[in-house]
Amino acid sequence: MDPVLAAMVLAAGVSLAQLWLKFASRKPHHQKWHALNLEDAIWWIDWVVAASVALVALLVIAAHEHKAVSVSQVIWASVTLLAGYSILPLSFRVICYENGQIKGWPYAAVMNMTGMTLLLGSAAAGASVNGW
């Protein structure tokens, strides 16, 4: 299976499992049939963590096997870590939240698509290092 597709399937599977656990474990409020909220649809954090862990692991595997790592791959790894752990959280807090609440579904979608982009880019970079 293509590593980028595998990363996307794994990320979607983990997110859906996480959503199911939240759905199943919370008691619904009053007349609602579920207790989920918009915050439960925020998966970009999981995807950024998965992206950075996967990329670092793939680079370590490549180094262990004495494979060459290009400058662009090192730059991508650095950008992933910098963006995922500093730029994105601060930007999202300023742009996508108001009074501690997400402004709406479009903002949640943008945050998730940004996280998925980092994950897929990291999978592609790590796969290319290892010749997959």
Rank of each mutant, 00 (worst) to 15 (best):
D2K: 06
D2Q: 10
V4H: 00
V4K: 00
A7N: 00
A7I: 02
L10S: 09
L10C: 09
A11V: 02
V14R: 04
A17H: 10
A17D: 07
L19Q: 06
W20D: 05
L21H: 08
F23Q: 13
A24E: 11
A24N: 11
R26K: 11
K27Q: 12
P28H: 07
Q31C: 03
Q31E: 12
K32C: 06
W33E: 15
H34R: 07
A35S: 13
L36A: 07
N37D: 13
L38Y: 03
E39L: 08
D40Q: 04
D40Y: 05
I45L: 10
I45S: 08
W47E: 08
V49W: 11
V49Y: 09
A50H: 01
A50R: 00
A51M: 07
A51T: 05
L58V: 01
A62N: 04
A62L: 01
H66A: 13
V71N: 14
I75V: 15
S78A: 14
V79P: 00
G84L: 03
I87V: 15
I87Y: 02
I87P: 02
L90W: 10
F92V: 01
V94W: 14
V94F: 12
V94N: 11
C96D: 06
G100K: 10
A108F: 00
A108Y: 03
M111G: 06
G115V: 09
M116C: 10
L118K: 04
L119K: 00
A125Q: 01
G126M: 02
S128A: 14
